[in-house]
Simulated scan of single mutants.
Amino acid sequence: MVPLKPLAVAKSRLAGSTGEPLRPRLALAFAQDTVAAALACPVVRDVVVVTDDPLAAAELTALGARAVPDSPAAGLNAALAHGARVVRERRPRAAVAALNADLPALRPAELARVLATAGDFPRAFLADAAEIGTTLLAARAGSELNPAFGGASRLRHLSAGAVEIVLAGVDSVRRDVDTGEDLLAASALGLGPYTARQRAVPGPVPGAGGAGVTAPGTRPAP
């Protein structure tokens, strides 16, 4: 499952470094690259996007995802719990995983490694690159997802009994993007094609304190 806020309010912290006109387009591009990579992952059966944004729903459905409305609209964790219920209404014994929508450098092979490890535990999660938040939470068949995303979610997931996944070489699954600095770090890993297209205009990319840093190259579509 991939949750996505309405594009009009998504990724608000990026506006200062990318400019307001580009912000919603980048939010959508991040989600497109995330969903495309997840669909290309050999251990992912399908991808459900939880969103109330009609444009995002249309674009992500076109990639092969299934969009469901964010109902009840009561925040990120309620949306993820709702998405898990929707998945298990069709397949009651399905393993489920929640994945951030802002992973523009996501690689299918790295995601497959994380999910394979997660399958060894009733509930497991992967911390973000800062080791404060969470980018992926998984629950195998028979276990509830019980998401606690947002802010210092790593500690909340640990305290709720989820096992932390510790793997080397899965940086693309940990690199979410909230700020201009995060976007530069994702660029160093190699952006997916949708984000790269939005960043295709040559020139410096704003970084910390307004400094210009030229972004590295991109990677091909998964």
Rank of each mutant, 00 (worst) to 15 (best):
P6T: 12
A8V: 11
A15S: 15
G16A: 14
G19W: 09
A38L: 14
C41V: 00
V43N: 11
V48R: 06
V49S: 01
D52W: 04
D53L: 10
R66I: 13
A67P: 02
D70W: 15
D70T: 06
P72G: 13
G75P: 07
L76S: 04
L76K: 11
N77T: 06
A78H: 10
A81G: 15
H82G: 13
H82M: 07
E89A: 15
P92R: 15
A94P: 07
A97D: 02
A97C: 08
A98H: 04
N100W: 00
N100L: 10
A101T: 01
A109S: 13
L111A: 00
A116Q: 14
D120M: 13
A127W: 04
D128T: 11
G133V: 09
A139S: 10
R140S: 10
A141R: 13
N146F: 10
P147K: 07
A148G: 05
R154A: 13
R156E: 11
G161E: 10
I165R: 07
L167D: 02
D171V: 01
S172H: 00
V173E: 04
R174Q: 15
D176G: 12
V177N: 03
E181S: 11
A186T: 02
L189S: 09
G190W: 01
G190S: 06
L191T: 00
T195W: 01
A196P: 00
A196S: 14
V201F: 01
P204C: 03
V205R: 14
G212E: 15
T214M: 08
T214P: 03
P220N: 04
P220H: 04
A221K: 08
